[in-house]
Simulated scan of single mutants.
Amino acid sequence: MYRSSVAIAGSGFMGSTHLEALRRLGITVAGVVCSSPEKAQQTASDFGVPNAYGSYEDMLADSAVGAVHICVPNNLHYTMAKQALLAGKHVMCEKPLAMDSRETEDLVWVAEQSGLAAGVCYNLRYYPLNFEARHLAGGGQLGRLFHVNGCYIQDWLQLETDFNWRVDSGKGGALRAVADIGTHWMDMVQMITGQKIHRVFADLATVHESRSHAGSAMPVDTEDCASILFRMDGGLAGSFFVSQVASGRKNTIRYEISGEKGAIAWDSERPEELWRGYRGRTNETMVKDPSLLSAGAMRHTSYPGGHMEGYPDTFKHCFHDFYSYIEAGNFTSPPPFPTFPDGHRELQLCEAILKSHRQQSWVEVG
């Protein structure tokens, strides 16, 4: 596994999650950088890492650091990712890759010129049974694919008093629920089907026009939920729903893909089960067991059947692909992890979805 050290920018939920996954892989974390030197000192102490960098520039100047994980608010992604690449560091950036497609297009070019590994943390594709679903859908076992539908729903912003920096379009971007969680769903189904979404029709809704924050009412101009129709370049029709105000749903991801020979469905609340539907015989539920999985799914499975793999394991498998690719050293080979071009495409999708909502019409992606 990767022999150089890694540094993490950011101390929140994502920063600690990345740290845990890296340690499980045996990768050395050299230190952290935060919004202030004092916060970095406290985070380094809490995380048990040796260095608290006084600034991002100090971190990039550390020759022992070969890769950077960017886990900060969205509006900082572009500048920090570009600086890291220009400093000769591999980059794993949290999603979305940047605030708009002009920034992501530039990052794709910088990454290509750098000859470095550049990944976007669409980790949720890394549940093992998603790779089994890809084997079934992409391998012809479902026949010609007809349609796909699903959702990604949460309730953590349901109340008018719920607040997070993502609500602020200046920090999170013009889209919130779609960019924050909807892009995970779109990445997942595009990876599984092998088809790209190329047309969208979207309807967005903001439940709370203002939210209580720091003793005052803050106007909200980002969506709480969205309904999206789409078409994929292979002819597949689709739809999905995104919400951060869905009562009782903490982090529910679902998809169902139907084809001429059968269907498959998966639900993150039952991540070890893949449903298979048939017209002329009894339906089946496949339970994750590496001895029964395809080679691609088995490669992303760490534990035997009956031993659940969940959310933290998706980061581990994503980073394993990233750092194994770096160690292999052949940067002309296709990367097995979500890349900057994938992140660019997701921003193009977000912009098409926002344009579609505003025009109330179908919009071509990109």
Rank of each mutant, 00 (worst) to 15 (best):
D62P: 08
K95A: 03
T79N: 13
A84L: 09
E103V: 07
C93A: 14
A52P: 12
T104L: 01
A98Q: 00
L60Q: 08
E103T: 11
L97G: 04
D100T: 10
H90S: 05
H69N: 01
G54Y: 05
A61E: 07
M59V: 00
L97D: 06
H90K: 07
A81R: 05
M99G: 05
N74M: 07
N74D: 06
P73N: 05
Y56T: 06
S55F: 02
R102Y: 12
E105R: 14
M92T: 11
Y78M: 03
M80W: 15
D106C: 09
A98E: 00
A61I: 02
L86H: 13
A64T: 15
M99K: 04
C93T: 13
Y56N: 10
D62K: 01
V72Y: 02
L60K: 03
E103N: 12
P73R: 02
E103H: 13
G88R: 08
P96D: 01
V68T: 04
G88Q: 10
E105F: 06
G88E: 11
D58T: 13
Y53N: 04
S101L: 03
C71D: 07
M92W: 06
A98S: 11
V65H: 03
M92A: 15
V72M: 08
C71M: 13
N74L: 06
G54L: 10
H77G: 07
H90W: 05
N75A: 11
L97F: 10
S55V: 05
T104C: 00
Q83Y: 00
L60M: 14
A87H: 14
L97V: 14
M80K: 10
A61R: 15
M92H: 11
P96E: 04
E103I: 12
P73G: 08
V65R: 00
K89T: 09
S101T: 03
A98H: 00
D100R: 05
A61T: 07
I70D: 02
T79Y: 07
L85C: 12
D100I: 06
V65G: 02
M59Y: 02
I70Q: 04
L86A: 13
L85A: 13
K89G: 04
E103L: 07
D100G: 09
Y78H: 14
D62S: 10
T79I: 12
I70G: 00
R102I: 13
V68D: 02
S101Y: 08
D106Q: 13
